[in-house]
């Protein structure tokens, strides 16, 4: 019982079709790998990020008089072209700080921290990126350098200006709670996002980037 030539050509065509399908799938997989290692999970590069102990504020910011409480509504970081509205963030039931929705283009202010301009460390958090939406509001936060200016607009119409003291990167497993959230003797600002390598199994970055800034002036918002 030999196969007829027609059967053979039919099975050959089927095999060829399956082969083409397999090649298409393989190319799709290769493309997705390129995407994964490229834009989608890109980690910003910068030089100058250091892990250092808390330093004194730059430019004598301690002398600036603290403002009365007023919720922050906007954030400007000209050096990395950040112009963001600010959400309000709370504490999660597990005790961790809430973060903005992953797809949100805005940063958020942790409402149990002082309002920016008040005495104490005002805490603002933002995403570094998202697989769905690409770079987040704090994608370039690592590129901020000491001396860069930050302005926070407040609900009462005033604004608080800060100057970056330092930028630090910490492993999430050793996040320095006291240094970041601890009491300070002036109006300060903490900008927090993720950094370091992306752990695919944990679906999380391994580090946090923290920008420490101190108030330098306050006034009426433009």
């Amino acid at each position: 019982m030999h196969d007829e030539p027609g059967d053979r050509s039919r099975s050959g065509r089927l095999l060829l079709l399956l082969l083409i399908l397999a090649v298409v799938l393989a190319l799709t997989g290769a493309g997705s790998l390129v995407f994964a290692s490229g834009f989608g999970l890109r980690t910003p590069q910068r030089s100058g990020a250091t892990i250092a102990p808390p330093a004194d504020p730059v430019g004598g910011a301690v002398t600036v008089e603290a403002l009365a409480p007023s919720a922050p509504v906007s954030l400007e970081i000209p050096a990395i072209e950040v112009h963001s509205s600010l959400l309000r963030l709370r504490l999660n039931p597990d005790g961790t700080v809430e973060v903005p929705p992953l797809d949100s283009p805005d940063a958020g202010w942790y409402e149990n921290s002082p309002t920016p301009g008040e005495r104490g460390p005002a805490v603002i958090l933002g995403h570094v990126d998202s697989a769905r939406t690409g770079p987040g509001v704090f994608f370039d936060l690592r590129a901020v350098l000491p001396g860069d200016g930050i302005t926070v607009g407040r609900a009462d119409g005033t604004s608080a200006s800060f100057r970056v003291d330092r930028v630090a990167e910490y492993p999430k497993t050793a996040f320095p709670t006291a240094a970041v959230y601890g009491d300070i003797d002036h109006a300060g600002l903490r900008l927090i996002t993720c950094g370091g390598a992306f752990d695919r199994s944990a679906r999380s970055y391994e580090d946090n980037i923290v920008v420490y800034a101190s108030a330098v002036s306050a006034g009426q918002a433009g």
């Binding site: 989608g40 999970l41 603290a66 409480p69 504490l91 597990d94 005790g95 961790t96 700080v97 973060v99 992953l102 942790y110 149990n112 921290s113 002082p114 008040e118 005495r119 104490g120 460390p121 805490v123 958090l125 933002g126 995403h127 570094v128 990126d129 998202s130 697989a131 769905r132 987040g136 704090f138 910490y170 999430k172 497993t173 996040f175 709670t177 959230y181 009491d183 300070i184 927090i192 996002t193 993720c194 992306f198 752990d199 944990a202 679906r203 999380s204 970055y205 946090n208």
Partner: peptide, 16 residues
């Protein structure tokens, strides 16, 4: 003026 409720752990601000 200081933080009234200190968060625990590290914030998850990546696309994780």
């Amino acid at each position: 003026g200081q933080i009234s409720q200190i968060p625990s752990g590290a914030p998850d601000t990546g696309g994780g």
